[in-house]
């Protein structure tokens, strides 16, 4: 197990390097001249030239690449082309709002989703299942921005219970995390159900039942462990997605997070910010996947790592 984790960690370096190269090429393939964009709508050609020089975009592509790699190795991601602040600072400021929003959304949606999923599987084709799955299906098929707007209209504007935007205190987290978590809860519920239904039909569960163990014992002790594998996979994936910042939800609720930063950066062709963000998202994803794989082993010792 330790060897497995170590080898995965070693594999991380080439992956990150590959992503770095790709993202560098990628941003330079995007149409649109960042100097022109940064200089603004009524800039004269010499202003654009000045801005280009200021942003270091007058160098050749290989020179820029060497500068980028050198910077990353020294933990220096350069300065944002649009705000001119260090990219690291820019990201650090936006990371925590996204992180906490993700944590809260995951917390409620996983709890809720798994509970619905287990209940639906146990009482399959009966009313808890029908209600649960109707909820889950609705959660996944309603676009997030529409849900966010409805919630804001009802709970902030009409009822005045919570602020419409802002993350100054816990009340600001309620609506965005509900909106963001709705789809996750729905996915978790469906996955848990499907996985449990599979497992409950397995021989060993039938055996346990046949032995006369009571249903709760069967579900918790025998089914849970095996059913959790796909559920954990899905949980990891969703966590990673949310951590990347939900663009739509962050926009509707004016959330000062990474999703909005990324959209703004793409709009302005803010190369350093895009590059650093993609590297960060990659790192998060790889880390989460590693944790998920290790969890597989812990949950089900039948899986061995070589």
């Amino acid at each position: 197990m330790t060897r497995y984790v170590l080898s995965r960690l070693a594999g991380l370096v080439p992956t990150l390097f590959l992503i770095g190269v790709l993202v560098f090429l990628f941003v330079h393939l995007l149409p649109g001249d960042p100097a022109r964009l940064a200089a603004g709508p009524d800039a004269t050609p010499e202003t654009v030239a000045l801005v280009r020089k200021d942003l270091g975009l007058d160098r050749t592509i290989p020179q820029q690449f060497v500068r980028f790699v050198d910077g990353v190795l020294h933990w220096n991601f350069g300065r944002s082309l649009s705000t001119k602040r260090p990219v690291a600072e820019e990201i650090a400021e936006r990371f925590m709002p996204t992180f906490w929003l993700t944590v809260w959304s995951m917390a409620w949606s996983v709890t809720f989703g798994m509970a619905i999923g287990v209940a639906s599987a146990v009482w399959r084709n009966r009313w808890p299942d029908r209600i649960g799955m109707t909820l889950a299906v609705s959660g996944i098929s309603f676009p997030a921005f529409a849900l966010g707007m409805v919630l804001m209209q009802v709970f902030a504007v009409d009822l005045g219970w919570v602020p419409a935007v802002g993350n100054d205190d816990w009340r600001g987290y309620i609506l965005p995390s509900l909106t963001l978590g709705a789809a996750v809860a729905a996915i978790m519920a469906r996955f848990t159900r499907s996985s449990f239904v599979d497992i409950l039909g397995e021989d060993f569960v039938r055996t346990a039942r046949a032995k006369g163990l009571d249903e709760r014992h069967v579900v918790i002790k025998h089914a849970m462990r095996n059913a959790l594998i796909p559920v954990v996979t899905m949980m990891g994936l969703q966590f990673g997605f949310l951590l990347g910042g939900s663009i739509v939800v962050e926009k509707v609720f004016n959330w000062p997070g990474l999703g909005r930063l990324l959209v703004d950066a793409v709009d302005m062709r803010d190369y350093p910010v895009i590059q650093a963000l993609v590297l960060l998202f990659s790192l998060e994803f790889i880390a989460i996947n590693l944790v998920v794989d290790v969890l597989y082993g812990l949950i089900n010792p039948a899986i061995r790592f070589r």
Binding site: M149, M152, Q153, A156, V157, G160, P163, A164, V165, G166, K251, V252, F253, N254, R260
Partner: peptide, 17 residues
């Protein structure tokens, strides 16, 4: 306070924020 979304900005006025 920059609020990018049109509808959210209008909501902010209505809530008195």
């Amino acid at each position: 306070k920059p609020v990018v979304d049109n509808n959210s900005r209008a909501a902010l006025m209505q809530t008195g924020e």
